[in-house]
């Protein structure tokens, strides 16, 4: 079994601060500390996010391979679920993304039960791409994520329309990550 964080306490703290900054400043790209040697298919930022957030209380869905599944179960104790709709945390490494509309979005009185989708993409960069506005953004922030489904902006509009219910998304590429909290409005760039 490949190891998890070198320092389980301080690396998780650093991972969380990156996630917190990402969520508080949508589209701003953060760097994380990651375990040195990862299972096949798992990249540093997504691995750090999972180690930071997952435990026995977070039903987790993933399309990652066997080695990664075993690694997650061993290091976090998260129960792995077969249906994306039953998950609180989702780790999406493949090309196909689960439809946002099918995931847990919470209820009007408990919108915090909406799921967190962690998705590995090919690249993340600021300054071009989507135009993001909303809480956490002074005027407008631009984020370019390569490898997202073509209909993602439409899915996101539908997700934002359910606010305060909805799904929050963390995009990961290599050791970088950026977040799209459900409160953010996304327009296609140009």
């Amino acid at each position: 079994m490949k190891p998890a964080f070198t320092d389980p306490v301080l690396d998780a703290q650093a991972g969380f601060r990156a996630l917190m900054e990402a969520m508080a400043r949508p589209g701003c790209v953060q760097q994380v500390i990651s375990p040195p040697d990862l299972p096949e298919g798992l990249e540093p930022a997504a691995a750090a996010a999972i180690l930071t957030l997952a435990d026995a209380e977070t039903p987790l869905w993933t399309d990652a391979g066997e080695e990664a599944r075993g690694w997650i179960a061993f290091h976090t104790g998260a129960p792995l679920v077969a249906e994306p709709a039953s998950a609180m945390l989702l780790l999406n490494t493949g090309a196909t993304m689960p439809e946002l509309a099918t995931l847990q979005a919470g209820e009007d009185e408990t919108p915090q039960d909406g799921a967190t989708l962690i998705r590995q993409v090919a690249g993340l960069s600021e300054g071009s791409g989507w135009r993001l506005t909303g809480p956490g953004i002074a005027h407008e922030h631009r984020l370019c994520a390569t490898g997202m489904p073509a209909d993602f902006p439409a899915q996101w509009r539908a997700n934002a329309a359910r606010f305060p219910c909805g799904v929050d998304v963390v995009l990961c590429a290599g050791a970088a990550l950026a977040a799209l909290p459900r409160s953010v409005a996304l327009r296609e760039g140009g």
Partner: peptide, 27 residues
């Protein structure tokens, strides 16, 4: 004591709540 007093499971629970709190401002 653990770093910053709380055990890691408690911190994780609070951290998950904090991320949702940020995503749903004021809730």
């Amino acid at each position: 004591y653990n770093f910053a007093y709380l055990d890691e499971a408690t911190k994780r629970m609070i951290r998950r709540a904090l991320l949702k709190a940020i995503a749903i401002p004021g809730h």
